[in-house]
Design a binder for these strands. Sequence first.
DNA 1: GCTGTTAAGTTAACACCGTTAACTCGAGGT
DNA 2: ACCTCGAGTTAACGGTGTTAACTTAACAGC
Lengths: 221, 221
Amino acid sequence: MAVDLTARRGADSEQAIMDAARHILAREGPDGLSMRSVADRVGMSATAIYRYFENKDALVARVVQSGFDRFGEYLRDAAARHPSGSLDRLAALGEAYIRFALENQEYFKLLFSLQHPHPHSIEELPDSGGHGLLRSAVEEAMASGAMRRANPDLVAVYLWSIAHGLLTLSMTCRLEDCPEFRHGALTKGPVELFRSFREFVRHGLQASLPATEEGSEGGDA
Amino acid sequence: MAVDLTARRGADSEQAIMDAARHILAREGPDGLSMRSVADRVGMSATAIYRYFENKDALVARVVQSGFDRFGEYLRDAAARHPSGSLDRLAALGEAYIRFALENQEYFKLLFSLQHPHPHSIEELPDSGGHGLLRSAVEEAMASGAMRRANPDLVAVYLWSIAHGLLTLSMTCRLEDCPEFRHGALTKGPVELFRSFREFVRHGLQASLPATEEGSEGGDA
DNA sequence: GCTGTTAAGTTAACACCGTTAACTCGAGGT
DNA sequence: ACCTCGAGTTAACGGTGTTAACTTAACAGC
């Protein structure tokens, strides 16, 4: 019972602090996340946090790290649902990337904040963040013959840029409720937009050569 | 002389405040930009700023707006250097996008900050931000036959995503100094990476059909 | 010339922020 | 019994955005 009364010891508090920080971040955004608000939620004074984290940045960094872990897990699951080496797996990775970001907006914004870049080097996120996953999916697709051969690192960044760019643009500019876009067919959300991109990614944007009949090239996989 | 002594009246102060804010933002980043630091630089008290701007957000919003104006001008210049309807113009637009961002990092980060999305709707930036420019360049390329026909809005967002994604990724993750990437050929900066993407954008990533000999498709434009 | 009015700016203050320093309290070991 | 040390407290400092109340100078009308 003594254990219950004095309650948390050591690592327990650390966990409680991180949980509180995560909760506040998700519900009130980064502006609501202060040492004092976290402390309130945990039920101790703000300065006590400094027993467990050097400063606010360190706390946030830990929260970010745990976010990357969840992110990576999410991506791994999505990839596992499609056969290795297929283009479908690559597409699923991209869609999962976007869906995770939309479902965990505050998280994602923090992870990829331009202001305080948290993955100081890509090193800090490679496997947890899913980058290694993407790279090997690309290599497998090339090996299986589904994708043309090219520098896999280059292709990985290329694909990553497409998903990431679409996502960040739609988050900052709200593509979907912009009249100028709407008069096109872009009432769609980012996920649908991403699906529409698939054709461009596969066949490119250059006009078919005038010699060859257009649209004759083959079936959809 | 009375004019000189009492100095600024009205709009002059407003301009001086924005200049100071711009200067501080570019040199010290967003953390250095406080009402008091701006006021110090202008030579008045922090609260005086409230005569001209409702609050800090309003001030920042104005600075952002002026940033978009410069951005748009930069893009317009870049586009004008290549013939209308050419794919070169589109590539130049993308490169200019990236170069501007690299040369005005603090600015760009603020413009496209995920945390406090400033272009609340894309409306606020369309022509100044260069979006209209991109869209018409796409339409012209389709009309000229250089690009295959498709929904121009969709293609515009696609291309925009590529440049924007590459840029934001390289800003947050520092792609260039990541060992895992370096072992590939990615020591290049974002501009070079973007150039390498050009081939993917044109011809796509799908493997050539096994039937047709690879690399037989035609000359480079 | 005196009197309002108004723009432009001041100082003082509030509540909040991250962070530091000094102190308290209680459990464990010797 | 004494000491140590982990876990937590309160008080305080300098910084932030912002508000309210006050000053000061220029200008208009009588």
